[in-house]
């Protein structure tokens, strides 16, 4: 029951996030959608991921987004309304993608797979950390290092892009 409630909330917030006129409202609805997704992760026993989701998305990305929105005074941000034909076309495209996906999924016979019980525990945070930093066959140390270099590069390049130009 609680799962369907969360499903409904995710769908509701996502729809509002793409359709509301003001982008400030959009950002808040995006926050709702991402937070409820963290709730879904809790149900899927990925507690660490749920925490990281809220930490990075709400505490990082959304704060940045709202900050950037606040720095600007532009009409398009409070009134980003597409034309009717554009709406219809986008609706057509997204519904056909959805229909295609549902058709493909329904041909896979996934009804029999139900949510595992607590007797099959999800990986713990320790296991996750070991997987990140392990140099064995199943380790992700290289990807981890590359991601950290990527983040550093992005940080520096963001500063370079946005910094004041010398007079």
């Amino acid at each position: 029951m609680i799962i369907y409630l969360l499903f409904f909330l995710v769908a509701f917030f996502s729809l509002l996030a793409v359709s509301s006129k003001s982008l400030y409202h959009s950002a808040i609805y995006l926050m709702g959608s991402l937070s409820v997704t963290a709730g879904l992760y809790l149900i899927l026993e990925a507690e660490f991921l749920a925490g990281i989701q809220v930490l990075v998305y709400v505490g990082g990305i959304l704060v940045l987004l709202v900050f950037a929105l606040m720095l600007t005074q532009s009409d398009i941000l409070v009134n980003d309304q597409p034309t009717f034909t554009k709406k219809i076309m986008a609706f057509g495209v997204s519904t056909s993608v959805f229909a295609l996906g549902v058709w493909l999924l329904s041909s896979l016979h996934l009804h029999s797979i139900i949510l595992p019980t607590a007797s099959s525990p999800a990986p713990s945070i320790k296991q996750l950390g070991h997987a990140f930093l392990s140099v064995q066959k199943n380790g992700y140390i290289l990807a981890f290092e590359i991601i950290s270099v990527l983040l550093l590069t992005v940080l520096i390049s963001a500063i370079v892009i946005a910094k004041k130009e010398k007079a």
Binding site: Y24, I28, M31, E47, F48, A50, G51, I52, V54, L55, V58, G59, G60, L62, V63, V66, F67, M70, I125
Partner: peptide
């Protein structure tokens, strides 16, 4: 919670967002 500390630091993000908004 087994993620207590992570939860605490994650939740504080809502407070920041509230102030900004």
């Amino acid at each position: 919670m087994n993620i207590g500390l992570l939860f605490l630091s994650a939740i504080s993000g809502y407070g920041v967002l509230g102030i900004l908004i």
